[in-house]
Measured scan of single mutants.
Amino acid sequence: MASQGTKRSYEQMETDGERQNATEIRASVGKMIGGIGRFYIQMCTELKLSDYEGRLIQNSLTIERMVLSAFDERRNKYLEEHPSAGKDPKKTGGPIYRRVNGKWMRELILYDKEEIRRIWRQANNGDDATAGLTHMMIWHSNLNDATYQRTRALVRTGMDPRMCSLMQGSTLPRRSGAAGAAVKGVGTMVMELVRMIKRGINDRNFWRGENGRKTRIAYERMCNILKGKFQTAAQKAMMDQVRESRNPGNAEFEDLTFLARSALILRGSVAHKSCLPACVYGPAVASGYDFEREGYSLVGIDPFRLLQNSQVYSLIRPNENPAHKSQLVWMACHSAAFEDLRVLSFIKGTKVLPRGKLSTRGVQIASNENMETMESSTLELRSRYWAIRTRSGGNTNQQRASAGQISIQPTFSVQRNLPFDRTTIMAAFNGNTEGRTSDMRTEIIRMMESARPEDVSFQGRGVFELSDEKAASPIVPSFDMSNEGSYFFGDNAEEYDN
């Protein structure tokens, strides 16, 4: 783990906690998980779902989305002020799938948001429990990260689609708070800032007046979040320049895209947490497990152990491969979309394939898809080993990566060399080191050039047997250095459309 220093740990961010010791953190995270579980059980009762239907990941996603929508204050306010045809701002819903006479049927349900809020609060001892809501947002974000390569979004903001390893959390809503900021990748933060800068260039009043003052505060806050992700002084200094700019424009845009590229080699610290679907927490609570009393951590053995003992089902389209669908969801559960496939294969105990080789589309089923041909199958979400999630980018030494994705962002704290394609990355730096950030740029390029592919990161860190909950005997895996390590390699994943 990167030293926490003055930073709060993510469990504290996750639970809005002030400084807590490890036991208190485990208890408050457990409380959050228990609340999600209780809410899910109650919703299944309301909807009269069978046990099997309640364990269907598509039903879980609909129920999670309903509660997130019920608590989305800004959108609710907007919907009330701008009524649109056929949208009731006070209601929320989605597809629920039921097994009827041996076939899967889709039923569109509609609930009062007020009623959903009441059920959620009741499951969370009367609190709004925003930490639990954020947790579900991060699960949705991790699922998107594993399912889609955001080529269009990258290109629109002047970045290269091969930089997708920097895009963790790119679909997280803005209201996801400190826990959300911690899991956002460098590219995601750059993209958010670039969008602001572009608006400022096109709209003279963007930075002016009372609204402009708020915009400015948001801009500086985002700059500080991004600065905190960088691990070298030169990158941090460049972020200070971007933040202090009187009138952010093209120079800042250039600096930010430069920094994003540099992060492929001088990786930023991005938190990883295993956020599971509500249909995993519900049955665990129903079986009598007391998360608050037992304590829970999002970055240790607990999620692995929970998945070892969970039964989750998914709808499967006619030509999809259930094992591939399982891999997709497994990666999402562990926030591992940008991790090295060699490491993932070792931990999972079966070969993890790149996205383009998977015969599976996303987990969600569109409303126009034919239910007649839908089957369902068990998702295999178990693992051979477990490993500690990392909050750091690993040290800054790398190795060759593949054509589709030119770097990785480690999820697990496991000893290995970190793949990246130096030639491709360095070719993108057209040696432009003039301007006010020239000395920093020169320094950053120097550090990137001296990074050695064969150097090892996370020295001495290994994986653990599932029986080793105290992480007492690390097993340090050895990897084939020459092997392909990137998930979005030469990829044809669908595009994420909101």
Rank of each mutant, 00 (worst) to 15 (best):
315 L>R: 00
418 L>T: 14
223 C>E: 09
335 S>G: 14
446 R>Q: 12
363 V>W: 03
250 N>L: 09
281 Y>N: 09
165 S>Q: 00
204 R>W: 10
117 R>D: 08
239 M>Y: 01
156 R>H: 07
324 H>G: 04
376 S>I: 04
322 P>M: 13
30 G>Q: 07
279 C>I: 01
450 S>N: 14
126 G>K: 09
94 G>S: 02
356 G>E: 10
132 G>Y: 05
375 E>I: 06
106 R>N: 09
96 I>E: 14
257 T>S: 10
377 S>T: 14
475 I>C: 14
82 H>A: 14
251 A>S: 08
471 A>E: 13
346 F>R: 02
240 D>K: 02
174 R>K: 13
178 A>T: 14
219 Y>D: 12
301 I>Y: 12
415 Q>H: 11
92 T>H: 04
366 A>R: 04
327 Q>S: 13
159 M>K: 08
89 P>L: 04
70 A>R: 01
283 P>F: 01
255 D>W: 04
473 S>C: 14
286 A>N: 12
492 N>Q: 07
376 S>W: 03
180 G>H: 03
64 E>D: 10
353 L>F: 06
238 M>W: 02
352 V>I: 13
377 S>P: 08
467 S>K: 10
30 G>I: 12
406 I>Y: 02
385 Y>D: 12
396 T>S: 15
312 V>I: 04
439 D>L: 03
405 Q>Y: 02
87 K>F: 07
256 L>I: 14
128 D>G: 05
192 E>H: 03
255 D>S: 02
234 A>D: 09
333 C>F: 13
458 F>T: 00
400 R>C: 09
269 S>A: 12
320 E>W: 05
265 I>D: 05
237 A>N: 05
87 K>I: 12
18 E>N: 06
180 G>A: 05
65 R>D: 08
409 Q>I: 15
476 V>D: 01
422 R>H: 02
84 S>H: 07
188 T>P: 13
55 R>M: 07
327 Q>C: 14
220 E>R: 06
195 R>F: 08
126 G>L: 14
183 V>I: 15
230 F>S: 09
61 L>V: 10
48 K>D: 08
343 V>A: 12
385 Y>E: 01
346 F>C: 06
54 G>P: 13
481 M>W: 11
147 T>A: 12
244 E>V: 14
297 S>V: 03
152 R>D: 03
336 A>W: 03
371 M>N: 15
365 I>P: 03
38 R>V: 06
456 V>W: 10
385 Y>G: 09
421 D>M: 02
473 S>A: 04
430 N>I: 08
490 G>Q: 03
292 E>Y: 11
205 N>L: 03
223 C>F: 10
344 L>H: 03
155 V>A: 13
314 S>I: 11
429 F>R: 00
28 S>I: 01
391 R>H: 06
275 C>W: 10
270 V>T: 15
362 G>W: 09
10 Y>F: 14
41 I>Y: 15
297 S>D: 07
90 K>R: 05
32 M>F: 14
493 A>E: 10
392 S>C: 10
98 R>T: 11
11 E>W: 14
248 P>Q: 11
479 F>A: 04
446 R>M: 11
101 N>F: 00
101 N>P: 08
451 A>H: 10
109 I>M: 13
477 P>K: 01
370 N>W: 10
244 E>P: 04
299 V>C: 09
78 Y>C: 10
214 K>T: 08
305 R>F: 09
297 S>E: 02
355 R>E: 03
137 M>C: 08
73 E>M: 15
106 R>I: 11
490 G>R: 10
326 S>P: 00
269 S>H: 14
302 D>K: 03
357 K>M: 10
484 E>Q: 09
359 S>H: 08
295 G>Q: 08
187 G>Y: 05
268 G>V: 14
250 N>K: 07
30 G>R: 09
116 I>F: 04
276 L>I: 14
493 A>C: 05
349 G>F: 05
383 S>G: 13
110 L>G: 03
132 G>I: 03
392 S>N: 12
185 G>V: 07
216 R>S: 11
396 T>V: 11
99 R>K: 14
